[in-house]
Amino acid sequence: MNLAGIKKSEGVKVNASKSYFLGFGWNIKDALDIALEEAGPDYDMLIDGVVRYASYPFVLQIKVEGTAVNSQKMIAQMGQEGFNQWISGHQVTTADTVKLIKE
Rank of each mutant, 00 (worst) to 15 (best):
M1N: 05
N2A: 07
A4T: 06
K7V: 04
V12A: 05
K13T: 08
V14N: 05
V14G: 05
N15E: 13
S17V: 06
L22F: 05
L22E: 02
L22K: 01
L22Q: 03
G23A: 09
F24D: 09
F24I: 03
G25M: 12
G25V: 09
W26D: 03
N27K: 14
N27I: 11
K29M: 06
D30Q: 03
A31M: 01
L32T: 00
I34V: 04
A35C: 01
A35Q: 01
L36M: 01
L36S: 01
P41E: 09
L46N: 05
I47Q: 06
I47E: 03
G49C: 11
G49K: 03
G49H: 04
V50S: 10
Y53N: 08
A54Y: 08
Y56M: 10
P57R: 12
P57D: 11
V59A: 07
L60C: 08
I62R: 00
G66E: 00
T67Y: 03
V69M: 02
V69T: 03
S71Q: 11
Q72F: 09
Q72K: 12
M74R: 06
M74C: 08
M74F: 08
A76D: 14
Q77L: 15
M78W: 15
M78A: 14
M78F: 15
Q80E: 13
E81D: 15
E81A: 13
E81K: 15
G82Q: 14
F83T: 14
N84S: 15
W86V: 06
W86K: 04
I87G: 08
I87Q: 11
H90D: 10
Q91F: 09
V92M: 12
T93Y: 10
T94N: 10
A95N: 13
D96W: 07
D96L: 09
T97V: 01
V98M: 02
L100E: 07
I101H: 07
K102L: 07
K102W: 00
